[in-house]
Simulated assay, not measured.
Amino acid sequence: MEQTKMKSFFSAAGRLAAVAAIVALSAAPAIAQQATDPAAQPTAPAAAPATTDPAATAPAAAPAETPAPAETGVGEAAATTEVVENPYGLNAIIEHGDFVSKGTLIAMAIMSAGTWYILVTKLIEQSMLMGQAKAAERNFWNAGSLEDGAAKLKENNTFRMIAEDGLRAIQHHDGSMTDAIDLNSWVSLSLQRSVDAVNSRLQGGLAFLATVGSTAPFIGLFGTVWGIYHALVSIGISGQASIDKVAGPVGEALIMTAIGLLVAVPAVLAYNWLTRRNKGAMDKVRNFAADLHGLLIAGHKNSANVARSA
């Protein structure tokens, strides 16, 4: 019985020893892993912020002084917004161009100024003539006689001058060398000369506009050829066709072409417009002269008949 109890005791003790050994073996790797894990061990840098060494705190204070580069960037941005003068524009031609370029510009400037001067003056002259035609239709034909009708018009009125020329032709025909010409032809010639004088005055300046309109593009083309010649010379001297060598002369050539067109186009338009307006004005003058011619001849015949009957 005792032996049986002793066997049972030793058997239980052996089992406990085996369980303890298994527990010890399973716990040993976990302890070893905990001992070698870097994350489980406290690191020395965690205590670094507590140091009071000035050398250690200097790098942390450096970022506080970084606004200086921002100020420099603002200054550079402001510098880049400055207006840069165009080195290849019209001012460059005026300041640095040779005598040929400047002479071409002066010639086209004179043509342009003359075109606009003639356009403005001719428009004023044509408007005045149209107003005089209205005054003649309103006052001249309602008068009792040709002399009274001429007196109702202003002294500078073109239609008054035509009427006075017709009256002088009637008065100076008898008893002079003009007796060899019949009265009808003589009055017609006198009135025709007056009408031609008005037409010549209206046509003044139109030849200049026609000349400018036909020659200004070729003058601009001459400036273009001269600019291309300068570009070729620059390429030959430098030995390379870089953009900085040809930009100036080519820009000069293009500007000359543009100026030639800007001068020619207004001249052509002004010529056509003024010619059309002149035709309308001269129609009024010719109609007035034709009506006046009929009245002069009829009035002279009536006067002659009255003299014979007396």
Rank of each mutant, 00 (worst) to 15 (best):
M128N: 01
G103E: 11
S127N: 04
K102T: 05
A143I: 12
E137K: 13
R138L: 13
G131Q: 08
Y117A: 12
A113T: 07
A135C: 10
D98R: 02
I106N: 00
G103Y: 12
N91K: 10
V100W: 02
I94W: 00
T104V: 15
F140T: 09
S101Q: 07
N91P: 06
S127D: 01
A107K: 04
V120F: 07
A107V: 02
T115C: 15
T104P: 09
M108K: 03
S127L: 13
G97K: 02
N139D: 15
A135M: 09
W116A: 05
V120A: 09
Y117C: 11
G97M: 06
K122G: 10
E137D: 12
E95H: 06
A113I: 12
A136V: 14
G97A: 04
W141E: 02
L119C: 11
I124T: 00
S101A: 15
T115D: 09
I93P: 04
G131H: 05
I106H: 00
L123K: 00
Q126M: 15
T121L: 10
G131N: 11
N142Y: 13
A92C: 07
R138M: 14
T115N: 02
E125T: 15
S127T: 12
I124G: 00
F140K: 03
L129Q: 08
E125A: 15
M111E: 03
I106F: 11
I94S: 01
M130H: 08
I94Q: 00
T121V: 08
V120K: 01
E125L: 15
S101N: 07
L119Y: 07
S112H: 03
I94K: 00
L129Y: 07
W116F: 12
G103F: 12
W141V: 11
W116H: 02
V120G: 03
G114A: 03
Q126Y: 13
H96L: 10
I110A: 14
W141C: 04
L123M: 07
T115H: 09
G131E: 08
L105H: 01
M130W: 10
A113H: 06
M111D: 00
Q126F: 14
A133F: 04
K134W: 03
N91S: 10
E95L: 13
N91Y: 07
D98P: 03
L129R: 11
A92V: 07
A109M: 13
G114P: 05
M128I: 15
S127F: 15
Q126A: 11
A113G: 06
G114R: 09
F140I: 05
F99Y: 07
Y117L: 15
H96V: 09
V120Q: 01
M130P: 02
G131K: 06
V100G: 04
S112Y: 05
S127W: 10
I94A: 08
N142P: 00
M111R: 06
A136S: 10
L123G: 03
A92M: 09
D98Q: 03
M111T: 00
N139E: 13
G131T: 08
A143Y: 09
E137Y: 10
M130S: 07
M111Q: 01
T115Y: 14
K122L: 13
A107T: 05
W141R: 01
I124C: 03
S127Y: 12
I110R: 00
T121K: 12
A107D: 05
